[in-house]
């Protein structure tokens, strides 16, 4: 347990709690960004700098940006607070604590509790693995991304888009 790990872990955990609890959606999105960025720091500590870079680029730069757009486009005028009633909150707390207990029990009863560190993966070997051994998964993923893109465009389009619509270039 290095101090770097403890700090990163605390940051990640705290940011995740704020993500799910914060009463303003905008703050929740920003906390999510903080959590993802501190996870990138943890990835660097785990000798996965490539994944850390991708995380910064894709998650913080991409996913979070999309979320920001979602928040801004679905903003009701004059709303602000997201309330959680106490009954579902208690139910959720019990369920997630129970799951955590289960998982923690499993983790602490691992037979090989503390394996030794292995040689870190090189970027080149990741690339060889993605494009070599896992090429089929890679290609399937590209098809999936295409399908998601088409689906997202179809879903987000206005229904009456057949006619030459008025707001073609304007952000809705």
């Amino acid at each position: 347990m290095t101090p770097g790990f403890i700090i990163a872990a605390l940051l990640i955990f705290a940011a995740s709690i704020f993500t799910v609890r914060s009463s303003k959606l905008v703050h929740a999105v920003l906390w999510l960004g903080a959590m993802l960025a501190s996870t990138a720091v943890l990835f660097i500590q785990l000798d996965a700098p490539f994944l850390a870079g991708i995380q910064l680029l894709l998650y913080v730069g991409g996913v979070m940006t999309l979320m920001i757009f979602g928040v801004m486009l679905t903003k009701k005028s004059g709303d602000g607070e997201l309330r959680t009633e106490s009954a579902p909150a208690l139910r959720g707390l019990v369920i997630s604590l129970a799951l955590f207990g289960l998982l923690a029990g499993g983790i602490f009863s691992m037979t090989n509790g503390a394996p030794a560190l292995q040689k870190p993966e090189e970027v080149a070997s990741i690339a060889a693995s993605v494009l070599g051994e896992h090429w089929l998964a890679f290609e399937t993923l590209s098809v999936l991304l295409l399908a998601a893109m088409v689906g997202a465009i179809l879903l987000a389009r206005k229904r009456d888009a057949g006619a030459p619509e008025s707001g073609k270039a304007s952000p809705r």
């Binding site: 799910v20 609890r21 959680t84 139910r91 998982l103």
Partner: peptide, 9 residues
């Protein structure tokens, strides 16, 4: 589990 909590609430 934190994520799950958020999902449920």
């Amino acid at each position: 589990c934190v994520g799950l909590y958020g999902l449920l609430t």
